[in-house]
Simulated assay, not measured.
Amino acid sequence: MHVDRWIPHMTARRQMRPTDVKRLNRTWRRNTEQRLGLIVESVTGPFNVGSIFRTAAAFGVEHVWLAGNATPPTNPKAQKTALGTDRLVTWSEPLPAADAVQAAKDEGLAVIAVELTGDALPLHESPLAGDVCLVVGGEDHGCSPALLEAADGVCYIPQVGRVGSFNVAVAAAIALAEARRQGWTAP
């Protein structure tokens, strides 16, 4: 972004008060029609699970399906990063991957895995503006072959640095943010 795109301001900037933040969030909620779901497959790190739930609550995810051997958000260590936000998101106990995908599809959501595969689309080119359920896989192995087979599509997060992957909680946040951005900017 070029500096000349910024509009100069005449008053001192200040952070919003909690009441202003609530009002702003309420406005975004009213202007959001897109439904979001999330499948968390075999993410075992409790701090990752807590971060994912906090992000899911912030982006208004309707339901989180745990799959494989995912750690539940009730884990005490997950609670430390979730900060109670897991109570704001409906979630299901771990299911087999294909069952979690089918449950999301039964709710009318297209299931898109975030994974590096040969047919994956770049995240920003993936059709995420509709009702969608994103999928993130375990820290070490990503999404299972069964889940990838059951998903409607696959996308990846382009990276230009010298690191080959993101932390799973960060990847979930990036993907959810892009899905919301597409939903908000869709005609």
Rank of each mutant, 00 (worst) to 15 (best):
I157H: 01
G108N: 08
P76V: 11
W91Q: 05
G137Q: 03
D131R: 13
V101P: 00
K77T: 06
P145I: 05
E107T: 04
D99W: 00
T85S: 15
A82G: 15
G84I: 08
H141V: 06
T90R: 15
L121F: 05
V111Y: 02
V154E: 03
L134E: 04
T90I: 02
V163R: 15
A110Q: 14
D119T: 14
I112E: 00
A120T: 06
T85E: 09
K80Q: 13
P158E: 08
G164V: 07
G164D: 15
A103Y: 06
S126K: 01
G130K: 07
E139M: 05
P73L: 01
E149W: 03
L88C: 06
D86L: 01
V111S: 00
V160C: 05
E139D: 05
P94G: 07
P158R: 04
G130Y: 10
P158L: 03
P73Q: 06
C155R: 02
L134T: 04
A151Q: 09
D119C: 01
L95T: 10
Q79R: 15
G137A: 07
A151E: 05
L128F: 11
K77Y: 07
C133V: 08
V135K: 05
P122Q: 09
E125S: 14
Q79M: 14
A97M: 07
D106H: 05
Q102H: 06
A100H: 10
N75A: 08
A103I: 08
D119K: 11
G130A: 11
H124W: 12
A110T: 12
L148T: 06
L121P: 02
E107G: 00
T90H: 12
V160Q: 05
C143G: 01
T74K: 02
S165R: 13
D152S: 09
P73H: 04
S165Y: 11
I112D: 01
W91K: 04
H124S: 14
A104F: 10
S165C: 14
I157E: 04
L116Y: 10
